[in-house]
Design a protein around this nucleic acid. Structure first.
Length: 1034
RNA sequence: GAGUGUAUAGCUCAGCGGUAGAGCACCACAUUGACAUUGUGGGGGUCACAGGUUCAAAUCCUGUUAUACUCACCA
């Protein structure tokens, strides 16, 4: 059964059967991690898949290799604006506008949508095969989250961080809401700069400028440049730079707004750029950020002339333009200005204009009343906090700090319906029932507070002494703006009653909070500490005392919070990660997570962002349907470098698919070649016996081991020899080495490096080298030993592979997990204790390194390792050389070629080397030659003297003699010549280095040793090259 | 304009002080072997450019030039 055909079944097993890797349920530690909650707007995209796979890898890695069980919490985000857009669109299909339904009915529809799409998202997440803790799934508008969000708002307000103000914000005319700076997408577009004449007051005749037919002269007007002429009806001044010689005389004069008889002053301001436009700029405080600031300083009126739909309105707008969309109006205005010769010129320019991230419509800066959260204090704290978080990649700390340094108050109110409604209740003067009481509170309340922001003025002792008034809640009431901040209507009513207001008059703020406001609390609301932080504190003042109480609520041993880590896309560092740090720290006094891992975005193979409109989006579930989970998963993991975008295309998928197939095939090989071990996993004794018998008959040779197995008192146990054959020790040592490398890479979040290491380990070391060589081992006296090492090594590989390919690894592991040949490890001799536990990879490793024996030390370990590696090196050097010749000369396998290894030089070395490894186990190491034969396809004859018809070929430590039959050797000779030259070059380079005094003085000893070794090797090589060339020339 | 990256093989990218790497593509050879969704070998690189630090630089620093992203910029 090939891989592609097996995938479906494998995945079925994966989802329906217990995870064999999860058998041990005892973990040293338990911790928590939250899934960045996907929006309930639609489908998962490939970026979600990458994000989820990285997290799932972390969970599996921590569980299997760190004894740390991470509870990974799924959830979904209500995504205010985005979802509202979708639902509105849906309703429009049946010709229903949200206004027709009204807020309540509309919200019902959204909740219906939520149910449906949350299920969708969860279904899709489940199809990715993730180890999520589904019992704890949460939605950002769940009741407890709503409470926490209200509470958070109140607390922010009481500590003076939230305020309501009339400020200029980015306004989305399509959604009719304000949005935050981060939700603005700047796009470069081609537009026009219009140069418009503003006539001076005293240059005019009695007639208004619109009637002028005279040729305009510069003494009569000033030219103002703008890209948005439609805003001119909101102009309150013309500003020039005080240092601008051209306009110095104009300061203090007035000019008329074209098409109107409105007169505005000409003022001077340093922020006015002399280089830009004409140097004179129209100031429209209501519709431009800088103008708003300038207007504030010059006491200019803020007059909105664009309504919330983007249509022109207001007294100063000419009748013909009233209620016309601003962009439409622009065209009309330009036409009229042209007609009236008020337009000096229009200039085609490229400029960047802000668009709504969600709606895509051109945003209008608009002065509106909004709720803001002051970020300054939290931001400066966050800059400290980020130092205590392990951030991967680290350079994002710089970016983080840069953003924090330039932070502005966050506009948190949205004029939409779907979201957390702001917990603020308004009252009006008509509803005061106890005026005396009200005024008394008002008086003291105003004194009590520094401003209308809610912050307590602690210096005001006078008020706190007044025992007749309940001042606890005073920082929740704003008497000037007539609102009460309270977590719910009951609390608001209570306060209202206290200050003499009829409580049935309260109306809640209709605005909702920015979606990211609730997201910022996500790690907190997903811990069980949510209650101790967000309840029963409404009537407490937020002071040191209650702060202490808050932090008391958090058990320091709490395994849930702070979270283990947060894994998310680098694009939402500011949107989400930064805000979580600030919010969670503010409320819990603790940094919400220990580590941050930021991955890049998944782009198409050309580096373009994937999107539906470009038709280059890849649906992860399509890929899964076609290729399987693991192929997608490994493809994403292996090509994801921390913080860098992934160019993702066919190639990534293909490499991954080939890898899966390779693993599946080698498993098939192992299964068929180590069949008797596999059969052991059928537990019934009768079966076992049968299987052992069949195992025996399937063996072509009558090996001792099999006989041993059949001895009843041994209960089919097999004694692993004291000294494993070096070919077998080699793979165990190799896996153990690379395992460490891989685990280190994962813990440093170098997942792409780890992926690459497991790839090389399985494909090159295990399949191409070890298993190929084992094909001869399996027919040797080492057969049983080899089978055990093959299966145990492979099981270990599969265990390491599990975080990368859970489906394939689970399938293979569950088919292999019961292969536990009852083996007595050799060390039972030493400890005198029968070691009849299953023979695990690590016990084999220990036995190779003779770990159980206390006499042994580190030195011995490295000696064993290096001896084993020498053996392998000798084999690979010979096979590589033969393969090289074969490749260069184009030799066919069907003809048997011979190789002589000259024993008086190379061979002896090798045989001695191998003997010492094999110690008493093997008398003569035929295996050595068999492996070379298997790997190279050449027949090997060890002998003292080569035959005359053989061609010498240089090795590092000697000479190979190869019978090339009648092949033309010129190609090879030329190659060797080149190789020789290169070796000479390398040698002289290395020698020059070692002769350099400064190098000797400064270089570290390891490097010096390395170079010395290299020189020794190169000398041998060069020497052999010379000898061989001499022989060839004969 | 400010910040942050990136420039390495034909393509997509790793490596980031001590002999230039992978996958794909290319060329040659092998042939049903666990694996044609294969194996083996090969060709192919002044590591953008210019300086500097260092015994040693693709790697660190400075500058230049491309290029990408983020933030600010609608006169």
């Amino acid at each position: 059964m090939n891989y592609s055909k097996s995938v479906t079944n494998m995945e079925k097993n994966f989802f329906s059967k217990a995870d064999p890797f999860q058998k041990s349920s005892k973990y040293e530690s338990k911790s928590r991690m939250v899934l960045p909650p996907p929006n309930i707007t639609g489908k998962l995209h490939i970026g979600h898949a990458l994000n989820a796979f990285v997290q799932d890898l972390k969970v599996r890695y921590e569980r299997s290799f760190n004894n740390n069980k991470i509870s990974w919490i799924p959830g979904t985000d209500h995504a205010g604006i985005a979802t509202q857009i979708m639902v509105e669109k849906l309703l429009l299909e049946s010709n229903i506008k949200k206004e027709d339904l009204g807020r309540e009915k509309f919200l019902e529809k959204v909740w219906e949508w939520k149910e449906k799409y949350q299920d969708n998202i969860y279904d899709q997440l489940k199809k990715l095969g993730l180890e999520l803790d589904w019992d704890q799934a949460k939605f950002t508008m769940d009741e407890d989250v709503q409470e926490a969000v209200s509470e958070a708002f109140c607390k922010f307000y009481k500590s003076g961080l939230i305020f309501k103000d009339n400020r200029i914000v980015h306004w989305d005319t399509k959604m009719q809401t304000a949005i935050s700076d981060l939700e603005v997408r700047n796009e470069e577009v081609t537009g026009y700069m219009y140069y418009i004449k503003y006539y001076f007051e005293n240059s005019l005749s009695e007639d208004s400028p619109k009637n002028t037919t005279e040729e305009p002269i510069s003494e009569n007007f000033v030219t103002v440049a703008t890209t948005r002429p439609e805003t001119m009806f909101g102009d309150k001044a013309i500003a020039v730079n005080p240092n601008d010689e051209r306009y110095k005389n104009l300061i203090g004069r007035s000019a008329y707004i074209p098409m109107t008889d409105i007169k505005i002053p000409i003022i001077s301001d340093e922020r006015c750029d002399m280089e830009k436009g004409s140097g004179a700029v129209k100031i429209t405080p209501a519709h431009d950020f800088l103008d708003f600031e300038i207007g504030k300083d010059h006491d200019l009126e803020v007059q909105n002339i664009i309504d919330k739909y983007g249509k022109l309105s207001g007294d100063s707008v000419p009748k013909s333009l009233q209620n016309i969309d601003r962009l439409e109006a622009r065209k009309k205005i330009i036409k009229e200005l042209k007609d009236k010769e008020l337009l000096v010129k229009e200039e085609k320019i490229k400029h960047i204009i802000p668009h709504g991230d969600r709606s895509g419509s051109i945003l209008e800066p608009m002065a509106t009343k909004q709720w803001f959260l002051d970020m300054d204090s939290m931001a400066s704290e966050a800059k400290e906090d980020i130092q205590n978080i392990a951030v991967f990649p680290q350079n994002y700390i710089k970016i983080f700090n840069h953003w924090m340094n330039n932070i502005q108050p966050w506009c948190i109110s949205r004029q939409i319906w779907w979201g957390h409604q702001i917990p603020v209740w308004y009252f009006d003067d008509n509803h005061i029932y106890d005026l005396e009481k009200y005024n008394s509170y008002k008086k003291h309340g105003t004194n009590y507070l520094t401003s209308d922001y809610g912050q307590i003025n602690k210096d005001n002792e006078q008020f706190s002494k007044n025992a007749n008034l309940n001042h606890e809640f005073l920082n929740q009431v704003n008497f000037e703006k007539r609102f009460i901040v309270a977590k719910d209507i009951e609390s608001a009513r209570k306060i209202a009653k206290d200050i003499g207001i009829k409580n049935d008059s309260l109306t809640q703020e209709t605005d909702v909070l920015d979606t990211w406001f609730s997201s910022a609390l996500w790690p907190l609301v997903n811990s069980k500490e949510i209650n101790s932080i967000f309840t029963n504190s409404l009537n407490q003042e937020l002071n040191q005392k209650s702060t202490q109480e808050l932090s008391k609520g958090l058990d320091p041993k709490n395994e849930e919070y702070p979270n283990e880590c947060i894994i998310t896309g680098s694009d939402i560092l500011f949107f989400w990660v930064a805000r979580m740090i600030m919010f969670c720290k503010f409320f819990s006094k603790k940094i919400p997570f220990k580590q941050i891992y930021l991955h890049g975005l998944v782009q198409d193979s050309f580096g373009k962002k994937m999107s539906k409109s470009k038709n280059n989006a890849m649906d992860p579930l399509d890929i899964i349907a076609e290729e399987g989970i693991d192929v997608l998963r490994y493809a994403l993991l292996s090509s994801s470098v921390p913080g860098k975008n992934v160019k993702f295309g066919k190639q990534n998928i293909e490499k991954s698919r080939h890898f899966c197939i390779k693993i599946w095939n080698v498993f098939k090989f192992i299964k068929s070649n180590c069949s008797e071990l596999f059969d052991v996993n059928i537990h019934t004794p009768e079966n076992m016996e049968d299987n052992l018998k069949s195992g025996e008959s399937s063996q072509t040779h009558d090996s001792q081991e099999i006989k041993k197995q059949n001895i009843p008192q041994e209960e089919s146990s097999y004694n692993l020899p004291e000294n494993l054959h070096p070919w077998n020790s080699f793979i165990v040592l190799k896996i153990s080495d690379i395992r460490k490398t891989i685990l280190d890479f994962i813990s440093e979040w170098k997942i792409h490096e780890a992926s690459n290491e497991i790839y090389k380990l399985i494909w090159e070391d295990f399949c191409s080298l070890y298993i190929e060589g084992c094909k001869s081992m399996l027919n040797s006296e080492h057969s049983m030993e080899t089978k055990i090492v093959i299966t145990e090594s492979f099981k270990e590989l599969i265990r390491i592979l599990n975080p990368f390919m859970p489906v394939l690894s689970t399938e293979i592991f569950s088919l292999m997990e019961n292969i536990n040949p009852q083996t007595k490890a050799y060390n039972s001799n030493l400890t005198n204790k029968p070691c009849n536990t299953s023979c695990s990879f690590d016990s084999i490793l220990d036995s190779i390194l003779k770990k159980k024996s206390q006499k042994e030390n580190q030195e011995n370990e490295t000696l064993i390792k290096s001896k084993t590696l020498d053996y392998i090196k000798e084999i690979t050097e010979i096979t590589d050389s033969i393969r090289y010749c074969k490749g260069v000369l184009g030799i066919e396998n069907s003809i048997i070629y011979h190789v002589n290894i000259k024993q008086d030089h190379v061979g002896e070395n090798i045989i001695q080397g191998s003997k010492s490894h094999l110690e008493s186990n093997v008398e003569k190491d035929e295996v050595f030659y068999n492996i070379i034969e298997k790997l190279s396809g050449f027949k090997i004859h060890p002998s003292k003297e080569p035959k005359n018809d053989m061609t010498p070929y240089p090795l590092q430590q000697g000479v190979l003699y190869i019978n090339f039959l009648d092949k033309d050797l010129n190609k090879l000779k030329n190659k060797i010549k080149k190789e020789k030259e290169k070796s000479y070059q390398d040698l002289s380079d290395a020698e020059r280095k070692i002769e350099n005094k400064q190098f000797i003085e400064n270089a570290p000893t390891e490097i010096k040793e390395e170079i010395k070794e290299r020189i020794a090797k190169l000398k041998q090589i060069v020497d052999n090259f010379d000898k061989v060339e001499l022989m060839w020339s004969k």
